[in-house]
Design a protein around this nucleic acid. Structure first.
Lengths: 194, 194
DNA sequence: TGTCTAGTAGACAAATCTGTCTGCTCTTGA
DNA sequence: TCAAGAGCAGACAGATTTGTCTACTAGACA
C-alpha cells in the first residue's frame, strides 16, 4: 500500500469548496454572522462531509485565517527583487491593491480578531502568528536598509500598516496611494515637510 | 401639565442599567456574541422594559456606539489648556491610558465596525460620525500649529491613531508611551532619527 | 379612591445555531 | 465481483436567537 491520503484534511475537492465558500462569506459578512448551514448550502456539500474535514466551526475559522496568511505571504513573495527600502514601499502599496478590489472590507485579521476576545484562542493565535511574521519581515528589511533603530521603526511601520488598512476601508480617502507613500516616508524620516 | 418626560428614551434607571450592562458586554465580548437575554438578565430588567427603550437590538448597539463617542469626547475635553502641538500629543497619550485599563480590548469603534459590513447601517453611520469628528479635531489643531499640509497630516495622524489602538491591543508592545510619541513625532516631522 | 405609568416575570413563536446520526449512491481499486 | 472510501441528503436534538404578548405589582398623582 502506497502511503496515500492517510492524512484527512488535505486535498479534497469538497474540502476546497467548503474553505473557499467560507473564506468569501467570513470576509464579507463576519465570522459570527455566517452559519454552518449557509456554508454547506453554498458550497454544495453535505453536512457530514463538512464535519469530516472541520470537526468544529472554529477549526474552519482557523483554516480561513491561515489561508489568508498564506495568501498574504504569496502576494509579498511576488514582489520583484529590489532594494530593501523599495521593498518596504512595495509591501505597503499592496494595501492600495487590496483596497481597489471590489468587495474590500478591510483587514481579515483585524476583523476576525475583533470577534475573538480570548487571546489564547486558536484563531487569535493564528492571527498573532501572521502579525509576528509580518513584523519580522519589516524588521529584516529595515536592518538591510541600515535603519538606525530598526526595532522601533518596525513597530511604527506595523502601526502604519494596520492604520492604513483600517482607513482605506472605513474612510476611503481620496488618493490612497499618496497617503500610503506619505505615511511610510514620514515614518522612515525621508520627508519632513509637515 | 408641565412638559415633562414626554420623550421616552431619556433618563430612566432601568434604561441606564441596560445601556451600562450592554456597553460592558459588547465591548468585552463583541456585539453578535452577546444576546438580549443575557443583557436583560445581568441588568436585572424585564424583557418588556428592554423593548420599550430599545425597539430592536441594533438600536441598543447604536446607543452603545454613541455613548462611547460621548465618552471619548469627554476624555479629550478634560485635557488642560496647552499649545496645539502638545494637545495632539496629549490626545494620543489617551491611547496609552485606555490600554492600561484592566479589560482593554482595543477600539470599540473598530471592533464594532468589523461586525457591521453594511456601510449604510445606522451603527456604521454612528461610527463614521465619531471618526469624522476626530479627524476634524486633529485638522483644527494642525492648522493652529501652522502645519504646512494639515489635510494630509490629519489623514496620516488618523492612520496612526487607528494603528496604535490596534497594536496596543493585539501586540501589547513594551513601552507603549514611547511608541506613541515616536509615531506622532515622526509624522509631524519633528524627529528624523530613523 | 381611582387612574396612569413604570416596571417585573415569564410564556410563547419562529427562526437559526452547532453538531450528530442514519441511509443512500457513487467511484475506485484489489 | 466486491469492499472500502468519499460524498450527498436530510432528519434530529438541544440550545439560543430576536421579538411579542399577557398578567401582575407598586408608586405617584389628581
Amino acid at each position: 500500500m502506497v502511503d496515500h491520503a492517510t492524512d484527512i484534511g488535505r486535498e479534497s475537492a469538497a474540502r476546497n469548496r467548503i474553505l473557499d465558500t467560507a473564506t468569501n462569506l467570513f470576509y464579507a459578512e463576519g465570522v459570527h454572522a455566517v452559519g454552518i448551514d449557509r456554508i454547506i448550502a453554498e458550497a454544495g456539500v453535505a453536512k457530514a462531509t463538512f464535519y469530516k474535514y472541520f470537526p468544529a466551526k472554529d477549526e474552519l475559522v482557523r483554516a480561513y485565517i491561515q489561508g489568508q496568511s498564506r495568501q498574504g505571504r504569496a502576494m509579498i513573495d511576488k514582489i520583484s527583487e529590489r532594494s530593501a527600502r523599495d521593498s518596504i514601499l512595495a509591501i505597503f502599496d499592496l494595501v492600495a491593491d487590496a483596497a481597489a478590489q471590489p468587495g474590500y472590507r478591510g483587514c481579515p485579521f483585524l476583523n476576525a480578531a475583533a470577534e475573538y476576545p480570548e487571546p489564547s484562542h486558536p484563531v487569535r493565535q493564528a492571527i498573532d502568528e501572521h502579525r509576528q511574521w509580518k513584523r519580522d519581515l519589516l524588521l529584516g528589511l529595515l536592518e538591510a536598509d541600515g535603519c538606525l533603530d530598526p526595532e522601533t521603526t518596525a513597530d511604527v511601520l506595523t502601526v502604519a500598516n494596520d492604520g492604513l488598512l483600517v482607513a482605506s476601508h472605513l474612510d476611503k480617502p481620496a488618493n490612497l496611494r499618496r497617503l500610503i507613500r506619505e505615511t511610510v516616508l514620514r515614518i522612515l524620516g525621508l520627508s519632513a515637510d509637515a
